[in-house]
């Protein structure tokens, strides 16, 4: 798979996973690499880039044991971006399904 294409998909997955539940970096990497075959060391830079683009906000949460953890949460801009990504993705998949002779991704 084209690496740029894969990177875009991983970005969308990172946004989606965090939209469901705020997560800390290590937890996110574990979650995503369980589902997708991905080089784990590429996820943090993506997370960082998306945070710099203000798609994520971060906050610290103290733990009963050990140092506080940094959690990532989706911003309003992040929610908008995720919606855009999802719409694009559905349109793309629908086209692929049509070409392959199926009906639609939704069905």
């Amino acid at each position: 798979m084209n690496s740029q294409f894969k990177r875009g998909i991983i970005e969308m997955c990172v946004l989606k996973i965090i939209s469901r539940k705020d997560m800390y970096g290590f937890e996110l990497i574990e979650n995503i690499s369980r589902e997708i075959e991905v080089n784990e060391n590429t996820i943090y830079p993506i997370l960082r880039r998306l945070t710099k683009q203000q798609l994520f906000d971060t906050y610290k949460e103290s733990m009963s044991i050990g140092a506080p953890r940094k959690y990532y949460t989706l911003t309003e801009l992040g929610t908008k971006k995720l919606k855009e990504y999802e719409d694009e993705w559905k349109t793309f998949l629908d086209s692929v399904y049509r070409i392959l002779g199926g009906t639609s991704y939704e069905k």
Binding site: Y24, G25, N39, N41, T42, Y44, G66, K70
Partner: peptide, 29 residues
């Protein structure tokens, strides 16, 4: 952030070399 992630993996019982493979060597990232 890397400190936190490193500790997270160590906390899961991973060895240092395993953690570094997971996170990627500094030169590769």
């Amino acid at each position: 952030d890397y400190d936190e992630m490193y500790k997270g993996y160590l906390g899961k019982g991973m060895r240092d070399d395993e953690v570094e493979r997971k996170l990627g060597s500094p030169r590769s990232i």
